[in-house]
Design a protein around this nucleic acid. Structure first.
Length: 545
DNA sequence: AATATGTACG
């Protein structure tokens, strides 16, 4: 075979490989490569690297086969290592097994193969997957050693490592010292700041950016929602919409943006905004997947419109646990216990396995409706692991709430002492609330004092203690509590208030009183309602009795 | 050949 013929043979096999779309085909090509007498060792290694690349990374390939080919390859070259490391680092099935990509990386270093700017991001990805800060940091050192640290992709991956491991200072240092930054660098550091609670720093960096893409906007909007600054999230969204209407810059909101902004509207109770966002999405043909629809269900529910929530929910084709749970929660929130419980049965009948949050919603429904037996029933389903759910401390808090509201203090206390985990402030807080409700002075004082020991700066527990002591006429003790509050500088600084939106107008109610013309009307309506409620309770007693 | 973003309980 001449030199020319050998070249064209190599070319044709390369072409065959790049058009290969199944394993049978690939195995045939593999055998051709191995048995061909016309190929040099060098050319064979090149073809094997192409083969491993396809086999390890294509959807129709097979990582297991690639791995076997790799093991029989003598002196694998850099592209082969890169392909194998990449395949293992993006394969989530290997997350709980051996860190194959790190083992391969170590092996290539031992064999004196120098990693390049492509190797490093995949190795770092594996470190982030495993939250391996120690190995990650030494890979960062390798970047300097092998002279790839100025590569933007490498730098971004290093930032991603430190952000992923929660070490913001290191991430910021790398970001600040980068010779060249791109949108991804900015997005990574902004995301890192948001995750570490440095919201204002993130905000400032976002404002300083000159080239923002959808992900920049989405990160900052989602970040604002997550830290409870929903108003700012909506403001950013509106700015984004204005920018997207500008012809020069084309950043358009996508389904991720909408999922976040809808949940912002939900937490604000802004029905009108929420509806507008829903309409915007329909008008602009933005894909409305399960995630967005679930957010819409939640939003309509929290904004008080059960019927719209139902309508969106029914429109979800493939309902997942989150969608079912969102709708169950809407019913629970509105006191529609039977609908919530029926929907749970329907969900199970559809073969969707409930999770810890689903049961959290069911238990809160029971708590709000005072359904002790049903609460116990669901709680038992958790603790006897019918659905393989680990009971959480929140479930115990709910159950204590249910028992406490019913005045079953012995059972509530027994539950707390037998908990498999340490009771947190919410568990004790539920018991405290029950004590206040039922005038259980002795236990209430004990629990409040315990909570004050746990969180000495939380004014809510002092207020509860004062309330209990005042109602019990224990004015000496009340005085002591007040002294303690003064000593520690505890004030009930933020008066309780709430907000409701009707036809786009906002009405604010405060415990200090509301300067609103509607107030008199509302007060008289409330009086009338409470009379009717009393009548209802009497009727209930007659029915029961 | 590669790096970044979203939904449900309390």
């Amino acid at each position: 075979m001449s030199m020319m013929e050998s070249r064209s043979f190599l070319k044709s096999i390369t072409r065959l490989l790049s058009n290969c779309n199944n394993m049978k085909n690939l195995k045939q090509i593999h055998s051709q490569i191995i048995t061909s007498p016309h190929l040099s060792q060098f050319d064979k290694l090149f073809l094997i690297s192409r083969l491993i690349f396809f086999c390890a990374l294509s959807d129709s390939g097979s990582l297991a086969y690639a791995s076997r080919v790799f093991q029989t390859t003598h002196n694998p070259n850099l592209p082969i290592y890169n392909a194998m490391i990449r395949a293992y680092s993006s394969n989530f099935r290997h997350k709980h097994q051996n860190p194959q990509s790190l083992i391969l990386y170590k092996q290539m270093l031992v064999n004196n193969i120098v990693p390049d700017g492509i190797t490093i991001p995949f190795v770092l990805k594996e470190c982030v997957n495993r939250l391996d800060f120690v190995v990650g940091r030494s890979v960062h050192a390798h970047c300097v050693k092998f002279g790839v640290q100025d590569d933007v992709y490498v730098g971004n991956s290093v930032i991603g490592l430190y952000v992923g491991c929660g070490v913001l200072e290191c991430a910021r240092k790398v970001f600040d010292e980068m010779p060249e930054r791109d949108v991804v660098s900015w997005n990574l550091i902004i995301g890192g700041c948001l995750r570490c609670g440095e919201v204002d720093v993130a905000r400032e960096l976002f404002v300083r950016m000159d080239e923002r893409n959808v992900i920049s906007w989405n990160s900052v909007i989602a970040g604002m929602v997550q830290v409870g600054r929903a108003k700012e999230a909506v403001e950013f969204f509106h700015e984004m919409v204005v920018v997207s209407e500008d012809d020069v810059v084309s950043v358009y909101p996508d389904k991720m943006t909408l999922a976040s902004v809808v949940s912002a509207c939900a937490s604000l109770g802004w029905l009108k905004h929420g509806k507008w966002v829903h309409g915007y999405m329909l008008r602009n043909g933005i894909e409305c997947d399960v995630v967005v629809k679930t957010a819409l269900v939640d939003m309509y529910g929290k904004c008080g419109n059960v019927r719209l929530a139902e309508r969106v929910f029914k429109d979800i084709r493939k309902k997942d646990v989150l969608a079912w749970t969102a709708m169950i929660s809407v019913y629970a929130l509105h006191g529609h216990g039977n609908e919530a419980f029926d929907l749970f049965d329907k969900m199970v009948a559809c073969g969707v396995r409930p999770n810890a949050v689903t049961f959290g919603a069911l238990l809160t429904a029971c708590a709000h409706l005072g359904l002790v037996d049903r609460g116990r029933w669901y709680f038992n389903m958790i603790t006897t692991s019918v659905y393989m759910i680990e009971p959480t401390v929140q479930h115990y808090a709910c159950m204590v709430d249910i028992l406490g509201r019913a005045g079953l203090f012995d059972e509530a206390e027994r539950l707390i002492t037998n908990m498999p985990m340490d009771p947190d402030v919410f568990v004790w807080g539920a018991l405290l609330g029950a004590c206040q409700m039922h005038g259980n002075v002795e236990l209430g004082e004990k629990v409040a004092k315990h909570l004050i020991r746990l969180e000495p700066l939380n004014h809510a527990f002092y207020v509860a203690l004062c309330d209990i002591q005042a109602k019990a006429g224990k004015f000496d003790d009340l005085g002591n509590t007040r002294v303690l509050m003064n000593e520690r500088g505890i004030k009930k600084d933020t008066p309780g208030n709430s907000l409701i939106e009707v036809n786009g107008n906002f009405y604010e109610f405060s415990i200090k009183g509301s300067a609103d013309i509607m107030m008199e009307k509302i007060k008289s309506l409330l009086n009338q309602l409470s009379k009717e409620i009393k009548v209802d309770q009497d009727t209930l007693l007659i029915l029961k009795g």
